[in-house]
Amino acid sequence: MIQTIRLGHLLREAVTTPYRNLVTRPTGAAVRGRIERALAESGCRTALLDFSDVDLLDLSCADEIVAKLLLVSAPCPDRYVVLWGLRDDQVEAIDHVLSHQHLAVAALAAEAAVLDVLGAVDGDARAAFGCVAERGPVSAGAVAEALAWAEARARAALDLLAARRLVRVAGGAFHPLLVA
């Protein structure tokens, strides 16, 4: 089950501003609080955070919303977060704050067809993530073959992605996170 959360909508609830800018830490904290409540009420495993009706996202707000949401949801192994509808500047802001905190999240940029990973992941994990995102559910062996790696290397990269909840493991295969 996926729950889509429109950040622009939460922003309008959180602050009395006519603008669509996610700026300042207090705003970020208020929006994150609403996201956490929505997730707690829905019981969905995947939260799709929709940024498509947000204009500016500054670093402070990106940290309060995305980085802290990943940190607070870390104890929930079945909870996945995917960002959706991001513009280039928003991708950059989120990538910056997540890298700073050694965190990572799956994201689908506004013009993109497949998921990407933002934040701190090493080259192997990034390549394995791309393979899973493009091919759908795959085994470690299939990823190893596609990337011309030893299977142990592919498995290590995929296990890391699974531990960080960037891919889902089911039936012995690694699945890309669902966005629809």
Binding site: V15, T16, T17, P18, Y19, N21, V23, T24, R25, P26, T27, D55, L56, D58
Partner: peptide, 14 residues
């Protein structure tokens, strides 16, 4: 306060 920051950013953007 942070409301003023919203206002500043919004006005500059607009």
């Amino acid at each position: 306060g942070s409301d003023d920051v919203h206002d500043v950013v919004g006005r500059v953007q607009e």
